[in-house]
Design a protein around this nucleic acid. Structure first.
Lengths: 360, 360
DNA sequence: CTGAAAGCGCTTACAG
DNA sequence: CTGAAAGCGCTTACAG
């Protein structure tokens, strides 16, 4: 066992500098005037002894952890890295630490979360990492929280940071209908609890309604935001001899789109000539699919940053914004049927717009 | 300020259950026999008061943080999510917490790291997140550490978990030479400090030597493991009217390959007809490039898991493996010139081998 | 401006 | 098997 050498403590510093521990503490935290001569003596000793204050002791004394926790359901989906990057940036800027837990993994027997008020000052909760009951439980314990891509049930008062799903989807589907004359659009549903799926579906239906197209339950499949599930669902759909005709697919998200592409290609369905395909998120991979995926750009890193900001707000006793809704924009690439007149077909990973020439 | 309600403590439990705090503590930690009747009383009170032990107090008393820290230089590169997933999995399995810090962000004035013995029991350090001096400094403080994709300087004794770079690269380049008759292969160098780059370059040279091809310094460019840097370097190379001819590019890693693709396509260089391109890592994006990228599969999630394992080993006083070298394998897709006889060209994100038909 | 002392909420020898 | 008490390393009223 790597026994840690007896730590040098604030008491050692105090003794060597011939001051009280209180003074050392004050110098350390810069929260009270300490005379220059003492300051200098203290600093010298700290340098000499290579002193680092013990976070735990400070936390216990102040009952602040200086740490926030992030809870995500898994790490599959492509945009997690972006979310984390945004969060970490903001969190470390304010000298907080970031504890990360992946929901799936932490199904403790005792229904006790690995992250909570015992080890964090507050939690960032992504989508359905936690059930509503679990969230309510933490809320009862007064744990500061911010929800990401999910709004809190109406009786609770938890700030939310999410993206505009509905109108972007509507615009995207309208593009399919108006520009590419698609009318039989297959909807790949996300998981039911997922709020993003819900609003995307609403936007989808709005677009149909805009053009007096009846929503057809037969033109839906259950896909979740998962590549393989989407692949299998699409495959099953295509292999059903009585499946209705369709001329486009709205995938729910980009990861699902990957599975949809595979299933379609396997059956030699041409994208976009026979069937337009569109996704949502504009993850890193979208511009690299063949054909490049038309989708909706979600500013995920920004979402991460602003969620962290809201939580920090809460921790500082300032009033957070109840709902932060980040704007999204459709990104036209070729999978909808649009064509491109530049030849550097890949140099735009970041979700930038392309100069497109719309072809019906 | 969301004042936390006065916490219920072990003392409350003890009082209500009419036992001593020592007994509650023992029951909590299951580290000494507590009679069934007391146990029951304690459990009841804990349930009733909804008690959660305060991690900080426990940490201070035991001088264990039950937390390990992960340091990464940035989050750009695609494989970070996989690494993190592997680490979190292992760490949470052992009921440890995971603190994440991104190196770039934390350049504190005082040369004090946000992660260290003051808030973690040990550190997982990815590649060159820290300088050798910084590592040495932490080592002096006896902080348990494991290096990932980097070996420790010979005077220190820090376990390393990394991948086999050299022989895989050699095999990859030999494939280019032997199967596709490439002889003028451009080397896109990674950053100098990066050990992966170093060994890949050695493997590259070995392959040339295998075929008595002289290594040509003019056939190298400085690329780093970064898409944009690689793009610009490749572009500059191509625009130099006196640039030497080349018939293949070894990109250093997959991210760089993306930039190389862009630069090549911009100049209408056909991949792989005119120039073969190969990468390293087999990140999620590799099979989706056009043409799909031939590369080397690095088991990143596994690397994460095993790094965490070694650190946990260290923390438990058991002897860690000094160097864990994970095997890698070349993955043939089309960018080298191989062709494929299946039509589902994308349904293999995970880095599986394809059934390939080798064409010279 | 500085210090002595109590306290944060646990754990763990030491007794019995 | 259980309890009383000291201690982990800080912070922060309270005095002076």
């Amino acid at each position: 066992m790597t026994k840690r050498t007896a730590n040098i403590t604030i008491r050692d510093i105090a003794r060597e500098a011939d001051v009280s521990v209180a003074t050392v503490s004050r110098y350390l935290n810069q929260n009270a005037y300490v005379s220059p001569s003492l300051s200098e003596r203290i600093q010298k000793v700290m340098d000499r002894l290579d002193y680092v204050p013990q976070a735990t002791a400070r936390q216990l004394a102040t009952s602040k952890n200086n740490t926030i926790g992030l809870l995500v359901p898994n790490m599959q989906n492509n945009f997690f890295a972006a979310l984390l990057a945004g969060i970490e940036q903001e969190v470390s800027k304010h000298n907080f630490n970031l504890l990360v837990a992946i929901g799936d993994t932490n199904q403790n027997q005792r229904n006790q979360f690995s992250l909570g008020s015992h080890n964090t000052d507050g939690l960032l909760i992504f989508a359905d990492s936690l059930t509503d009951e679990q969230i309510a439980q933490l809320y009862d314990r007064q744990l500061p929280m911010v929800l990401i891509h999910k709004t809190s049930t109406s009786d609770l008062n938890i700030p939310t940071v999410t993206i505009e799903n509905k109108s972007a989807t509507r615009k995207l589907i309208n593009h399919l209908i108006e520009v590419h004359n698609r009318t039989q659009i297959l909807l790949v549903r996300g998981s039911e609890q997922q709020e993003d799926s819900y609003w995307r579906e609403v936007g989808f239906k709005d677009a149909l309604a805009d053009h007096d197209i009846a929503f057809d339950e037969n033109l839906t499949i259950r896909g979740s935001f998962d590549r393989d599930i989407a692949y299998n669902a699409m495959k099953a759909f295509l292999e059903n001899p009585t499946h209705p005709e369709f001329d486009a697919v709205f995938c729910g998200d980009d990861d699902a789109a990957i599975g949809i592409y595979d299933a379609l290609k396997e059956k030699n369905v041409q994208i976009p000539e026979e069937v337009s395909v569109v996704g949502f998120d504009d993850t890193q991979i979208a511009p690299f699919l063949t054909p490049p995926l038309t989708t909706v750009m979600a500013p995920t890193e920004e979402v991460g940053r602003s969620a962290a900001k809201q939580l920090l707000c809460l921790l500082n006793g300032r009033n957070p914004v109840p709902v932060t809704l980040h704007a999204t924009e459709i990104v036209l690439r070729q999978s909808c049927g649009c064509s491109i007149h530049e030849n550097n077909s890949q140099n735009q990973g970041g979700g930038f717009y392309k100069k497109v020439n719309v072809l019906p």
